[in-house]
């Protein structure tokens, strides 16, 4: 029993990773992955919205009539996104400015609506909450990997959050002075995503051969 709950949590992180395996939520993934700190912030936002909306939709699954379920889910998700926007505006203004419009666009992130439709309206509250956390963390992981590749190659730095006197930026010697700029630009995002997807397909095909 306990094992199955654990599985709901971990499946989203690697085996059903929303970005690399199910290919959902591409828009924010590509747009926000210019800096590691933005990717982490966006990821946390998605974990927050996804977990709470999964819990609420699971709670209300008997109340919401089947024919208007999608609009109802969208309203629930939009409410949590609004809460997130307000919280972030108040407590993390620099991150709020960096994410800009993509923060509001969490509403139309397919990961969240997809999980509501595919999981939360059929499963118990606990499982839905775990699924939300797992999928959210998987999304954060995927986003951070892409951001790491793009920031290291594109500007030769790794931007984390500023703590105390440290400005939160790790500079990589050699790359920081002569970065491969195109990776940080919009074209680079698409190229990196294509290569990563090819890598995951290749890994899957190898696994298939072993079996």
């Amino acid at each position: 029993m306990k094992n199955s709950h654990l599985k709901e949590l971990t499946k989203g992180i690697w085996k059903e990773n929303p970005i690399f395996v199910i290919m959902l939520g591409m828009c924010p993934t590509l747009a926000v992955s210019t800096q590691v700190s933005n990717a982490l912030g966006m990821g946390l936002g998605v974990v927050f919205v996804l977990t709470l909306s999964n819990i609420f939709i699971s709670l209300l699954k008997k109340v919401i009539p089947d024919s208007i379920r999608i609009p109802s889910y969208i309203v629930i998700i939009a409410s949590f996104v609004t809460i997130l926007e307000m919280l972030m505006h108040a407590y993390m203004p620099s991150l709020y400015d960096a994410l800009g419009i993509y923060l509001s666009l969490i509403v139309v992130n397919c990961v969240i609506l997809g999980r509501a439709e595919a999981f939360a309206n059929k499963n118990s509250i606990l499982d839905s909450a775990l699924d939300g956390i797992g999928m959210g963390l998987g999304f954060t992981l995927g986003l951070t990997i892409i951001a790491l590749i793009r920031e290291v190659l594109g500007s030769g730095t790794i931007t984390l959050f500023a703590i105390g006197g440290w400005d939160g930026v790790i500079r990589i010697p050699g790359l920081a002075s002569t970065p491969i700029r195109v990776v940080g630009m919009s074209a680079g995002a698409l190229l990196v995503m294509g290569l990563l997807k090819a890598f995951f397909t290749w890994k899957d095909s190898k696994k298939g051969e072993e079996k």
């Binding site: 995002a189 698409l190 190229l191």
Partner: peptide, 15 residues
């Protein structure tokens, strides 16, 4: 084979 489908689409879009 590994690039067929989605990966090559992303790379074309990148170009």
């Amino acid at each position: 084979k590994t690039f067929k489908g989605v990966p090559i689409t992303f790379i074309s879009a990148g170009i």
